[in-house]
Design a protein around this nucleic acid. Structure first.
Lengths: 225, 225
DNA sequence: CAACTTCTTGAAAGTTCATTCAGATTTCAC
DNA sequence: GTGAAATCTGAATGAACTTTCAAGAAGTTG
């Protein structure tokens, strides 16, 4: 299958360069000269990935990103000169997106794109229903069942349980749990984790024992096998 | 198994950054401020991989590489700013070593390291279950087993045992143990180590003999093979 | 906007663990 | 063998960590 990539940059020269590289690599390439144009293209065409210059007239790459993310989950790769807006790019990277520093090697760009595409469109291993003891949990359908009976979990409870089941046996600190479930920019206190663990244990009843306290560290989920 | 990585860079800040990333990823990190120091460390410690800045005082990364390769086959990963000495790095890349361009993303660095380690040591660096005699210990899950039966270890006991098993055969002073397990800012007396060793030996039963007293020095763990 | 759910927090209560000390024991050097 | 130095042991203390709870903040829904 061939992926369609939208290149958004105000410099014709850069667009040409990227088009050349990407077409060589077997992608279908569309272009836009600024964010406004790009949004229009996105409405009309099915795009698999956008390459976005950070510095653009009318609408910079980040504003564009916000607009796009509001209505879709198309992955983005940001282009930036070194040092330029470094922190912002860092922040965005965590959403499955990536960035690349100008100037770049052709192979580098292609590798990044392929990595992001793999990550985004791979046959999603998360669609597998995970299991631990009498508990099953499915990320896809956002549901969990205990011995076949549906569990009524809140958002945070679900996220917490999912992570623990996904990585059974591994111990996480409260700080790690906050980062991984709440997000890097969380503001919450570590007591919050305790409380959610408590209600999870309650809702899980006997199976709540699977969530073990690792003293001085945090929590983990141990599969009874 | 946990790998030991030597970071060689003249900038403290860069060393700190890399240390943070690598320790998060479960590696043991040592530092050297220049090539001369690094060669000294290599003589005394078992290092699995070096991360070498190309631009350094006294001895640049390439000269260092020549020296190292003369007596060992430790894999190297070169750090360079973009454009800097590009072709030289390219050339070296073919010897099983790798390079990475500054600035880099944490994940990128870890991925490179794991790739090189896999290539070099032909084992999966993610498997973190260590063994010594009838004892297995897993950093991930924070658990230890004796002949298959789970051991109930406290935080400090676990940390102590993990370190000793990680570096079987090596003797540590009580002061070193405090620094490595408790942290640099520990306040505890050396007698504390004695007590923890005592309970460890108790909990390990017969296998407790693996923890040997090195008179006048401290303790070590000897694998009965 | 009112009713409802979920999330968060801080403090009290409960539990486990780390540390210290002093006396007993072992090791080493002579 | 003897003395000095180092290590081992066991019990007591309180420091550190976890759990629980209740109340209010924040968010959602109709």
């Amino acid at each position: 299958m061939s992926y369609t990539i939208l290149v958004i940059d105000d410099e014709q020269q850069m667009r040409d360069l990227i088009r050349m590289i990407l077409e060589d690599a077997g992608f279908i390439v569309l272009e836009a000269g600024d964010g406004i144009q790009a949004l229009a293209v996105l409405k009309q065409q099915e795009i698999d990935l956008c390459i976005v210059d950070v510095m653009m007239p009318y609408m910079d790459g980040f504003t564009f990103a916000e607009q796009v993310k509001r209505t879709s989950s198309i992955p983005l790769i940001f282009l930036s000169a070194r040092g330029e807006e470094w922190d912002k790019v860092q922040g965005l990277k965590l959403g499955g997106d990536d960035y690349i520093v100008k100037p770049f090697l052709p192979g580098e760009l292609v590798a990044r794109i392929e990595a992001v595409l793999r990550r985004t469109y791979r046959v999603n291993p998360d669609s597998i229903v995970l299991q631990a003891g009498p508990l099953t949990i499915s990320e896809d359908s956002h549901t969990a069942q205990l011995a076949g009976k549906p569990l009524n979990l809140t958002l945070k409870e679900f996220g917490l349980l999912l992570l623990l089941v996904k990585h059974k046996g591994r111990a996480y600190s409260r700080e790690q749990l906050l980062e991984l479930v709440w997000g890097d920019d969380h503001q919450s206190s570590e007591r919050t984790i305790d409380t959610h663990v408590k209600t999870l244990r309650l809702k899980l009843g006997d199976a709540g024992k699977m969530i073990e306290t690792v003293w001085g560290i945090g929590y983990k989920l141990e599969d009874p096998e």
